Amino acid sequence: MRGVFYVLSAFAVMGLAIWAYGQNDRTQRAKNETRELRREIRSLTEAINVQRAEWAYLNRPERLLALAEMNASRLGLLSLEGRQFGHISEIPYPISLTRRGDD
């Protein structure tokens, strides 16, 4: 009877060892995948920051003004002046948004 118990115990230990090895292997693969994803995220974040810097550089007001002046005749652009804009009192607001203090 003891012999059967020892054999079953040995099989149980081997089975648990195989299970533990599988869990360890899966954990290591998950850690490696996480490491790769973090590396990719860092790379993409850096690329986004570079693109934001380039966008800010290309959209400098003095550069855009020079481009607008250089291409104004070809594109039919007009210069912006204060008189081209209306006054805030000229904006027609819907009735539902006006103040209702007289109700």
Rank of each mutant, 00 (worst) to 15 (best):
S89N: 15
G86R: 09
L16P: 00
G86I: 05
M70P: 04
H87V: 11
M14K: 01
Q23M: 10
Q23P: 02
L44A: 02
N49K: 02
L37Q: 08
S89G: 15
R99N: 07
E36H: 00
R63N: 14
R63F: 13
P94Y: 13
Y93Q: 14
Q28A: 02
A72M: 14
S43L: 06
Q51W: 06
R26S: 09
A66K: 12
L58W: 08
R35F: 10
D25K: 07
H87P: 08
M14T: 05
Q51R: 12
R99T: 12
S96V: 13
N32T: 01
T34L: 15
E36A: 04
L44Y: 02
A66C: 10
R52C: 09
A47S: 15
S43M: 05
E62N: 08
N24P: 03
A47Y: 00
S73E: 15
R99C: 07
L16M: 05
L67R: 07
R39H: 05
E46G: 00
T45C: 01
R52S: 08
Y93E: 12
Y93R: 15
G86A: 13
N59V: 10
A20E: 06
M14V: 12
A66V: 07
T45R: 13
R39E: 07
I91G: 06
T98N: 11
T34S: 14
T98P: 01
A30L: 03
Y57R: 12
E62Q: 09
A66H: 04
Q23E: 11
H87Y: 14
N32C: 01
H87T: 12
L97R: 08
L37H: 06
E33C: 01
E62L: 00
E90D: 14
G86M: 08
A66I: 04
S96A: 14
L64V: 15
A20I: 03
M70S: 08
T34D: 13
I88Y: 10
R99A: 12
G22C: 07
N32M: 04
L77E: 00
L97H: 04
N24R: 08
V50N: 03
A66W: 08
E40A: 15
T45V: 02
R29P: 00
L37Y: 01
I18M: 02
G82H: 13
R26W: 00
H87M: 09
R38E: 15
Q23N: 11
R26Y: 01
A20Y: 00
T45G: 08
T34A: 11
R99Y: 09
A53E: 11
L65M: 04
G76Q: 00
P61C: 06
A66G: 06
N49D: 14
L58H: 09
R26D: 06
E90L: 07
R52L: 09
L67M: 11
A72N: 07
L44Q: 11
A72C: 07
Q28R: 13
R60C: 05
Y21P: 02
P94D: 10
